[in-house]
Write a protein that binds this DNA or RNA. Sequence first.
DNA 1: TTTAGTATTGAGAATTAATCTCAATAAAAT
DNA 2: ATTTTATTGAGATTAATTCTCAATACTAAA
Lengths: 143, 143
Amino acid sequence: MDKKILNKFKAVLKKEQLKLTKQRHAVLANMIKSKGHRECDEIYDQLKSNGENVSRATVYRTVAILEKYGFLRKLELGDGRARYEYKLGLDHHDHMVCIECGQIIEFVNSEIELLQDKICIDMNFKLVRHIHQLFGVCEICQN
Amino acid sequence: MDKKILNKFKAVLKKEQLKLTKQRHAVLANMIKSKGHRECDEIYDQLKSNGENVSRATVYRTVAILEKYGFLRKLELGDGRARYEYKLGLDHHDHMVCIECGQIIEFVNSEIELLQDKICIDMNFKLVRHIHQLFGVCEICQN
DNA sequence: TTTAGTATTGAGAATTAATCTCAATAAAAT
DNA sequence: ATTTTATTGAGATTAATTCTCAATACTAAA
Ligand SMILES: [Mn+2]
Ligand SMILES: [Mn+2]
Ligand SMILES: [Zn+2]
Ligand SMILES: [Zn+2]
């Protein structure tokens, strides 16, 4: 794992009086390697098939820590299963979701981000995070 | 209940070979009357306290129909409980959610809506619906 | 490197919003 | 009024997530 990321993880853990365990390392390493939008069970299964056994409970506990400290972002797409994507150091983006095939397409629009900030300033709302998801039918599914 | 709304509801039900029952009427009437962002259990409790007993199962089943046909909009704010708001004939808006007190503030920004449409056109994505939620600290909770 | 102190893990139980089941009932059609 | 068809409700079920707690693994001090 990249030394910078690992050091940040160690710093976070120390600050929170948490210990660096094989399991926590394995979850983070796995998320860095496969950069999709992933359900906890997927992570669990993939770790298991790599021979790195981490319990489901620990996967859930670890992604929660990683989200809290900005390593991961949690997505809720309305199907009752949370997805996580690696985000540390990457540019912000939002998501389009195909309601036919489930495909997730990423998009960025800095104008929207600016307008969003302006709304919050105008309304004296301190923005922490946002969700902007577009649901519709992707190019492939239209044919 | 407003005759236009009731007629539209009747038309929808007929089209779908569903029957107009006391319970379905009660749920719709209740949603029209109290225009908040409401959990199913709230609707259930309020109906019960009005003496109009509708089972939880029927509340869930009815809001699903009402959402499908545009009477209601479903909100998922990330706490695992869906909220519904009445929307038929009302202007579109999105939501800011205070992470301290849970307050839901509505906002509208037509520029963002236009940019959103443009993104979808450019990417050949047929937009059906969207979620734009801003999470942060409201004016009151900042003091 | 031992030891003491503290945090973590995993297996399965618990939780909880939402959905399902199906016999009894109510609405619509004839 | 009778038949047909859909609906309801009570409680069981589902499924993602969280919790429990005894056994185990880190960490730092001696
Ligand atoms: Mn993404
Ligand atoms: Mn609203
Ligand atoms: Zn698609
Ligand atoms: Zn607030």
